[in-house]
Design a protein around this nucleic acid. Structure first.
Lengths: 237, 237
DNA sequence: GCAAAAGTGTTGGGAGTACACCCATGA
DNA sequence: TCATGGGTGTACTCCCAACACTTTTGC
């Protein structure tokens, strides 16, 4: 390797840069979408990429991901799900040097993402489907990372209550069903869905309030329940 | 901002060492067991640790894991399952320097692991249960890594045919059932288990041969089938 | 009243559990 | 013949898909 930070040559192991990249997913304008930033520097200047950055010298990986998320989206540690996704370290994934990136997956509700502190033209939500179909549009190996993140999110909706992470604090059963339908790309029977989610202990907690002013019968409003695993699981078919 | 716009050399990014650690699991003497090595150097000299080592300068992460697995166990790319587990990078996890380790999970059949090329007294199989109960016996954060690997393996048995990775090339339904029972620590009904696994398409392929010379009726021998996901899943309860 | 959306009842099928039972071998 | 383990049949239960039906609002 051309780069050899001082102090490490003696021991003889190769030096790496370590970054965190973020797959931030939400439901935006009825589409399953990911937060992208436009690169201002080479390589891949002008191309879209996942937000991310270097891990600081005294920083844990998850802390670095939280910091980057806050910097890119203005989201603090509110009703946001953040977990480690996978690590990517192909030797040539960054043409400049050896970079290993620890990708993280974040699921955020739409109203929470003003993308503050950045030039709006350089940060935006884009639907994931076209990106998955044309992987070359993203910088580095980010299309691969995105595909892994989307698949993780889709799988997690089955056995965890994470779909509520895409909803506001209070939401209806129909709101939640639309999340499932958009993320999975399938239609679900509203009647059976309603029975299923209201019958799964700990998934939803009624607030006592209802919607009003919309078409049709008012819906009961719920908030996230304490459950962390769904028994029985939701089925994708 | 993602990926510092200026050159990396000028601004100086924090240098990391990157290692791969291996959670190598098998069924050994009727116990769910992990491969450990005794450390010969500080820190944690004399303590047991997961096998692992530095990622080479031009080496992909999975390739590094395969190399370490071959070096520690003599196992080449035979009937072995190897996948990335998770990445651990707490700033103080190694007292010498900043080390990020990409842990990998390997599932191997017992007869394939002679632990060649190492001093036998320094490499051995140990049952996982006592290690999970006394996490301080392992070096670094390896007890945490081990716990994550064990949980991943237990979960994967439910929806993937990975239990066969613990079996020899040919095995009986009872062999496979004992794998599930040992890994999960639960008793399974032999009759229902038999119907379930033989009825799941692509899980098992009959070889036409049967066992002989043992007590009771001879059992049909199977090999792994082509399925990669189990429908329906095995249930842990 | 009518359309629209929320929510309930009912029924049939697929898969799980529990367990009685039969089969094929070694001793 | 008996013990041992392999393998099948069957009744019961639970969950889910499908869909008819009722409830409560806006227009």
């Amino acid at each position: 390797m051309p780069h050899s930070p001082a102090g490490y040559d003696a021991t003889g192991y190769p030096p790496f840069a370590v970054t965190v990249d973020l797959v931030v997913l939400t439901i935006h304008d009825g589409a399953f979408s990911v937060l992208l930033v436009r690169r201002g520097a080479e390589p891949f200047r002008g191309r879209w990429a996942l937000p991310g950055g270097f891990v600081h010298a005294d920083e844990d990986l998850l802390a670095a991901a939280e910091r980057e998320l806050a910097e890119e989206t203005g989201i603090a540690d509110r009703a946001v799900h953040l977990e480690q996704l996978a690590t990517y370290g192909a030797p040539d994934r960054d043409p400049r040097m050896r970079v290993v990136t620890v990708a993280h997956l974040a699921l955020v509700p739409q109203p929470l993402t003003p993308v503050a502190g950045s030039d709006a033209s350089d940060v935006e939500w884009q639907p994931v489907e076209p990106l998955l179909a044309r992987p070359d549009e993203l910088a580095f190996d980010h299309a691969h990372v995105l595909a892994d993140g989307v698949e993780r999110a889709r799988a997690k909706l089955e056995y965890s209550p994470l779909a509520t992470a895409f909803c506001a604090d209070e939401f209806t059963v129909a709101d939640l069903r639309r999340v499932y339908e958009i993320v999975w790309g399938t239609a679900l029977d509203p009647r059976n869905f309603h029975r299923k989610v209201t019958g799964t202990p700990g998934f939803l907690e009624p607030t006592g309030r209802t919607t009003a002013g919309e078409r049709g019968r008012p819906a009961v409003l719920f908030r996230r329940g304490p459950a962390t695993l769904l028994h029985p699981a939701m089925l994708r078919t």
